[in-house]
Amino acid sequence: MTMTMRLDDRLLEFLRRPLMCIIAGVDQTGRPSAGRGVGFNVLEDRTTIDLIFSGWQWPRLVSDIRQTGRLAVTFVSPADYVSFQLKGRADLSETEVPNADHAARFITAATDELQRLGVAPHVIAPWLTAQGARLARLSIQEIYIQTPGPHAGMMTGAEVR
């Protein structure tokens, strides 16, 4: 039976920090793909999250989500490496236009934070683009602590049923 996990208050608080976002898909042969997210929006039920990424920059992610719908996303706070990974089933929305405001806010916050940590702007620029933005709606089935250290890999979040 498939579980559904709900983002608890602590995770929602974490998601308000300046973050980096990395996304993995997998194709039908089991080959994984990797890309970067540039925005997100937690839906009202807290069990679903919309992820925005550049389909222009990460075309394999687009085709993998279409092929298998399996998706993992890790959010990391660059200042202290606190990280969480969400896994589940995703649908690529063919109709909804990603919310440009979400992406713009995410990119600005991440860029400012990385610059504050000493990364040069010209180095950051290639990573964060909303060109050809796509929206993947993830139904969260698993949540893991991903912060390097003894708790890495432990499950967290609240089970819905």
Binding site: I22, A24, G30, T68, L71, A72, Y81, Q85
Partner: peptide
């Protein structure tokens, strides 16, 4: 200097993604 990223998949096709030291 800039962390690398590794994406893997389990035998049953569940992807996983993390930063690498």
């Amino acid at each position: 200097v800039i962390p690398s990223i590794i994406a893997t998949a389990s035998a049953d096709g569940a992807p996983n993604i993390s930063y690498l030291s």
